[in-house]
Every structure is written in structure tokens, then in C-alpha cells.
Amino acid sequence: MLSVEALEVAYGGIPALNGVALGVDRGEIVALLGNNGAGKTTTLKTISGLLRPLRGAIVLEGESLVGAPAHRIVLKGIAHVPEGRRIFNRLTVRENLMMGAYPRHDAAAIAGDLDRVLTLFPRLEERIGQVAGTLSGGEQQMLAIGRALMLSPRLLLLDEPSMGLAPVLVEQIFETIVDINRQGTTILLVEQNAAMALAIAHRGYVLETGTVVLAGTAAELSDNADVRRAYLGE
């Protein structure tokens, strides 16, 4: 579905990605693991058009995405939940969700997706008229994911959904991610919490200093000695 090849990205001359290659098949959850600064967030930002690559290819179902601005890539059906959630604090929960459906004009289908999101996250329904800045961290993460789902995306990019959340909330969010995937959305997940990520992913890639050093199924990665030592805390 999505294939990334030989992706090179730099911030003001300093290289961040040195030829990242990865693929995501329809219906999968693919985890992108690695330490801080390995290039996980940069990879997602480049796929969604927030960053422009120096070289390399990003192809979604046969269509190249390189060079397109972020607001056009959204139209291809890629929704990106950025690091740090980036919800609109001064907008209400409902307005945030409706912004997620901004490029769509099918009112009936949008209403259906709103119902679906509110069923997935009942907390958001309770807070629907509230200004988003007043939500708790967990609720804000739910809102960020719900907002992305309002696009009815083919591919969902999730950047650190567990960041700053209590363990019980992390578990809840990950269960929801599995639900979303079962309902037919393909997911590319960036996560510091490698154990959680590998528990729900089908496949994974390990990034180090801007290159993929390891790839495999979730089970293979969980059994790999290097992965266990470096990312699973053994």
C-alpha cells in the first residue's frame, strides 16, 4: 500500500534520514521503533508532507507523494496524528473533530464517522462542547486520534500515542488502536514503548541514526537479542 524507498531528509544541512526504506501493506499495523533522534518522527513527517525529502520515493498505491504539500497528501487518505497530539486547544472537542473532516463534503458520511469516533471514545462524547485545552492528557490523545479518524483515512500515521500517559491509559489507547485496525484502517505506528508496540503490530522496523537496521515480523523482532537488549530493557 505504502512504500518508502531510499528516503533522505536533512534539517538545515544536518542529515536526519539516510536512505530509509520501508513498506506497509493494506490492513497491517507496522511499528517503527528506535531511540530518540533515530528518525522515526522525521519519517512520519516526510510521509505526510510536513517535511520535504532531499531524495527518495514515497509511493501510496502507485501514486508518488514526494513534493506534495501536507494539505494535498491528506486528500489521498493519509491521516497523521503528530507527536505531542497538537489538538486545537481553543476549539471545542466537536470543532476539533470537524476539522479532521475538513476536506470532506459528504455530510451524511461525516455524521456516520462522528458517531463511530464517539462510540470508540465515549469520553469525547461527554466533553463534546468543551474547549479542548481543558481536557486531560489521555482525553487529548483520544481527541487527536479521533480527529484523524474523521478523515476516514486509508492509512493512519500515529506518532507516540503513549507519550505522557499513565500505564492504564496507554493500554486503553493501544486496545483502541487494535480496534481501529480491525475496522479496516492500515496503521504505521511510531513508538518509544517497544514492548507495547510489538504486542499489537504485525511487522516492525528498527531505526538507528536515520537508517533501517532491522526489519521483521513482530514475533521475530521480539525474539531478536539486540532488540531485547536495546528496546525491551533486558
Binding site: 494539505h71 497538537r86 489538538i87 476549539l91
Partner: peptide, 24 residues
């Protein structure tokens, strides 16, 4: 209005707004 909400969204966070498909 939707366009008014988009103006407020852009005012708050341009990058996040562009991820919503808003042409900033």
C-alpha cells in the same frame, strides 16, 4: 462556519491545520 473554524485552527497551529487538509 467551517471556514471560520479553519481560520481559528490555523491561528493556533499551522502545521496541525495543514494535517487536517487545510490550505494554510
Amino acid at each position: 462556519t467551517k471556514i471560520g473554524t479553519a481560520i481559528r485552527a490555523v491561528a493556533e497551529d499551522q502545521a496541525a491545520a495543514s494535517l487536517m487538509g487545510i490550505d494554510v
